[in-house]
Amino acid sequence: MSGILFRRTWAAQRVRLLLVMLALAVWGFLLPVVYATFGKEIGTLVQSGAFANVFDVLSRFTGGDVFSIRGTVALGLVHPIALALVAIQVIGFAAAAVAGERQRGTLEVLLARPLERRVLYATLLAATVLFAALTEAAVLGGIVAGALLFGVAGDLRAIDIALCWLNAVALFGTLGAISLAASVSFDRLGPAMGIALGVTLVGYAVEFLGTLWPDAAWLRPYSPFRYFQPTRILAGTFELGDLLVLGAIFAAAVAWAAWVFPRRDLAAPS
């Protein structure tokens, strides 16, 4: 890993990262507020049977709700708003990290230094995982802060929060590794970003369909989102297998990039 490149990457990304983290923290903070304010009423509504089917369907998909603090934490992590914000930072950065520099022509200037391509890749991968860790910490930090401030943190266990964070980092670290593998494989940003977003959106859609439509349930194991289960973790059932599957996909993406990037031709920027 190159400390010089890492510091430069941090300096280039810190403003966007801070804005995304701030947005995620605010998002996370609001959920316990909503739970503390309306959770009891919504819970009563659910127990009354009215709209039961709607709530059931929604909670089956997102695994989250706002009528329990555990459901609130899960909702904070799996809601499309949170996922999109994390994806902007992690997947957006990773997909543009190499292909974007290729397209701008600055990769050539960088690789003319005494810097191995593998070291460049490892540094960008470390930054990707760090961004995933920080953004997920921001949303969980916001949730915990909101829960503590509004006195609704009673049911939450620190270990479960930590495992949720680990599971989320594993998911976005994996999506980031796939995006970075795409980035080192193309000379232009478009195809790299297309693959990165394609994997993420298709994965999300597959999980969405698989949870709501029994006939499509067989597709779920093929989605990375299937292995992100904060609701189960918060219920006390942590499955190591989820982390192992995500770890295997991460390793495959890293192996691809580490094999392809040093061997490929970097033709003159157009």
């Binding site: 022509g105 600055t106 200037v109 003319a112 230094r113 005494p114 810097l115 191995e116 070291v119």
Partner: peptide, 21 residues
């Protein structure tokens, strides 16, 4: 040779692209 060799070279690309920020 790898990176060590490039440590002994100075390179100016044609139509150089730089970090604008």
């Amino acid at each position: 040779a790898g990176a060590a060799l490039r440590g002994r070279i100075g390179y100016l690309p044609g139509g150089i692209a730089l970090y604008d920020s």
